[in-house]
Nucleic acid binder design. Structure first.
Length: 565
RNA sequence: GGGCGCGUGGCCUAGCCUGGAUAGGGCGCUGGCCUUCUAAGCCAGUAGUCGCGGGUUCGAAUCCCGUCGCGCCCGCCA
């Protein structure tokens, strides 16, 4: 698969070369060729308007002239000039043969890019282990996991990391609560059980000076690297963390590595960061607290001071984050972090600090919060939808739908789970991360239209046909019906979509594409009878190829490709 | 006050990086399609000053400036 090229890519190169050649010979112009893909008009198009300026001639004429001078090629089947554009049409018979052949040869690998030998660490979720995940933050694991899957598909070596904040106020409050309170909670998951201790302790801390002091003392001890306390703390937060991980598991999300924040205090790297940073000319002191003045880096106003230590010499979250990123950067070629938009300023601080220390900086994907129609989610105000409740509801509803349509299938629970959780993942990932989402049950649990079940359904239809008639290969497939042609073109562009969506770090492009592919398949299904038709063999090839590409997309999206539903 | 992000039919959304040929979809609503491969489907209809104003350009949803609305942030918290 090294340096291999997919058919559409080859076509595009041929077109570019052909245009370049004509421009050079006929007009003595060396220009970067920018092509368009006007759906439904041509496979590729070259607008001649910029040339018209250089040549001081009518673009319509130029297009016609260029069109005349370009001959058919290996991939170019036809060239036409229309309204100032040179339109190129691909040799559909060749495209068909190559695409079907490639999909069959490559299978689950179709669409992948060549191995990059680049290691990427994707950090996502990293939620404080003080309670269950709520829907407001559920974008994080879904975006992170999908990015990781996408990059893996694109030929990168990917490792996912969860940065466990075991030294923060949140975990300290939880710890205090569990040690000092006795609350009877009935819940089968520890994250839901323990969050009650956290909530109660947080309330007491606000009302009671003594409690506040005790919790602060816990934090101080952690920051001084008290191993005994840290170990005790770990015993408690691990149970909450495991609850969080169970929720993620339901969504098909598994994280490779867990990195504890305390590690960087214990191994002295935070101290080294502080030493290095305070040597910088931007360093200053306010009392005994050390800060960096970031005015010069475009950060103005009150927030220009980036504190790296407190007055008592202990480190701050962002400082420890710098140490973590230095460590991470030594273990990867690229770092990608998925963070809530509330972390923008902190991330900027970390980035500047890393640059000043001459270290690698991470790319960050920020997402907006999911809010409720009543406003931002808040555990304290009880205005919250837990991810577990959403998952449970989705699965239940999916199960009712399966029973309604299909009766009691033997693997109904598996199907219901795949449909329900798939719907959740798809609904989150189809929207670009920076767009705010207002959570509505009827939207989150939508099983129709642009949704995971729609796509899974198209896949199941393919499988159903292939179950009835075995596909045993097709030597020279050829298609005529416009629905067949549209479908084969969709299949052929998949590798391009993968490439672009990686480049733009935009997994929602895959979600968009696979929906369109499923849609194109539905049109084909409507128009072209497969089983029993004269073209049965060829159409089976198309069905099989569609099945494969939908499956590959769903793998990237972390959604189950169901054979039956 | 400052910084960042978002603003596309009643609702949701793609396209914006890299400007081009009628702004794609979905939900909803109206009507139609199951004696042939799964109707979680399909078809037809409905609905749009791409927040607003200016600029750049042969051409702007897309780039630039301004403006309004919403969100997030601006702690020796995380």
């Amino acid at each position: 698969m090294e340096s291999m090229k997919y058919p559409y890519e080859k076509f595009e190169e041929e077109v570019k070369e052909a245009i370049k050649e004509v421009l050079r010979v006929a007009y003595d112009i060396e220009e970067e060729i920018k092509l368009e893909k006007p759906k439904g008009i041509a496979d590729l198009a070259f607008p001649c308007f910029p040339l018209s300026k250089i040549l001081k001639r009518n673009p319509v004429e130029i297009a016609e002239e260029i069109a005349r001078k370009i001959r058919k090629g290996e991939w170019i089947e036809k060239v036409e000039a229309v309204k100032g554009y040179v339109n190129f049409f691909i040799d559909i018979r060749k495209l068909t043969r190559e695409t079907i052949r490639l999909i069959e040869e490559m299978g689950d690998d179709y669409g992948k890019q060549s191995k990059k030998k680049v290691k990427v660490i994707v950090e996502h979720t990293s939620a404080n282990p003080n309670g269950p995940l709520h829907v407001g933050r559920a974008r994080n694991p879904i975006i992170g996991d999908t990015i990781a899957r996408l990059l893996k598909f694109g030929g990168y070596d990917v490792v996912t990391q969860y940065y466990v904040d075991d030294m923060g106020k949140q975990v300290a409050i939880l710890f205090w609560g569990v040690k000092n309170l006795k609350i009877d909670v009935k819940h089968d998951k520890d994250d839901h059980k323990y969050v009650v201790y956290y909530q109660e302790a947080a309330k007491l801390m606000e009302e009671n000076e003594k409690v506040r002091k005790e919790i602060e003392e816990i934090i101080k001890e952690c920051e001084r690297g008290n191993k005994k306390i840290l170990a005790e703390l770990k015993g408690i937060y691990t149970r909450v963390l495991n609850g969080i991980l169970q929720s993620l598991e339901m969504l098909n999300i598994r994280i490779d590595e867990f990195v504890e924040e305390s590690k960087f205090v214990l191994d002295g790297s935070v101290e080294r960061v502080i030493q290095e940073l305070q040597k910088l000319p931007y360093a200053g002191k306010e009392g005994k607290a050390i800060y960096l003045d970031l005015e010069e880096f475009g950060i103005h106003g009150r927030d220009k001071k980036f504190y790296i230590t407190r007055s008592d010499g202990t480190s701050l979250y962002a400082t420890r984050d710098v140490a973590y990123h230095i460590w991470k950067g030594e273990r990867a070629d690229k770092m990608i972090n998925v963070l809530g938009e509330d972390h923008k300023l902190e991330a900027k601080f970390v980035e500047i600090a890393l640059k000043l220390l001459n270290k690698k900086t991470p790319e960050v994907i920020f997402y907006s919060f999911v809010s409720l129609p009543e406003g931002r989610m808040s555990t304290r105000k009880g205005r919250v939808v837990y991810l577990d409740d959403l998952i449970e509801e989705a699965i239940e509803r999916a199960k009712r739908e399966v029973i309604k349509r299909r009766g009691e299938l033997p693997n109904i629970d598996y199907i219901a789970r795949s449909v329900g959780t798939g719907a959740i993942r798809y609904n989150i990932i189809k929207v670009r991360p920076e767009k705010p989402i207002v959570f509505k049950w009827e939207e989150a649990l939508n099983f129709e239209g642009q949704s995971a079940p729609f796509i899974q359904y198209a896949h199941a239809r393919c499988c159903s046909i292939l179950r009835k008639v075995r596909y045993e290969g097709c030597e020279q497939p050829e298609y005529e019906h416009e629905s067949e042609i549209a479908l084969i073109k969709m299949l052929a562009t998949f590798p391009e979509i993968v490439k672009e969506s990686i480049k733009a770090r935009n997994p929602s492009a895959i979600a968009e594409y696979v929906y369109e592919l499923a849609s194109a398949f539905n049109a084909f299904y409507r128009d072209c009878r497969v089983i029993g038709s004269e073209k049965e063999k060829e159409r089976l090839a198309l069905v099989n190829a569609t099945r494969q590409v939908i499956c590959n997309c769903l793998t990237i999206l972390g959604i189950e490709a169901l054979e039956e539903m």
